[in-house]
Amino acid sequence: MKTLPIIIFGIAALAQWAAPLAQIWTHEQTLAKGTLIRLKCVAPDPYDPLRGRFLAVRPEQDQADVPAGMKVERGMHVFATLITRADGLATISQLSLTPPTSGDFIRLKTRYAYDNKATIEWPFERFYINEKLAPEADKWFAENIRTAQGIIAEVRVLNGRAVLADLSLGGKPFREILKERVK
């Protein structure tokens, strides 16, 4: 048996494990130790051919102020400092090119900048759902997205990384609401 193919195969097999495991590790860390922030969302979407049904999660805030002297270009990675308002919902207070020394922040991409405002791309956009619950989830999303309380995305944030943990309405988790509706 030749050694080189076996070595290459071994490296490839390890890489095939390492890529998803690295994702799992960082996301588990964020879910376990991250700060919970809540963001108000808009608009649904239905399907990914490889990963199944999902709800498109778009936080309401899609722009942030660019501090004077900071040059923002399209597709640039920036750090957004988050503050929690009196109503418990999070919002971006400022953008910076380096990670802030204190507080919660998310690393995100900018789309374009105009008039000292940058359009931002949140690092989460999909909430995958069970195929059986998907039609009901679509209805629920449509019914509640424009209500005053709105649908809230619960996101765990740690060291700039964000993981979408759940969706909720009126403090009740999304899956619980759906299961009750399907009964």
Binding site: P20, Q23, H27, G52, R126, V163
Partner: peptide
């Protein structure tokens, strides 16, 4: 993995 963690 990307489905479980709702990766973008």
């Amino acid at each position: 993995v990307s489905q479980i963690y709702n990766l973008g």
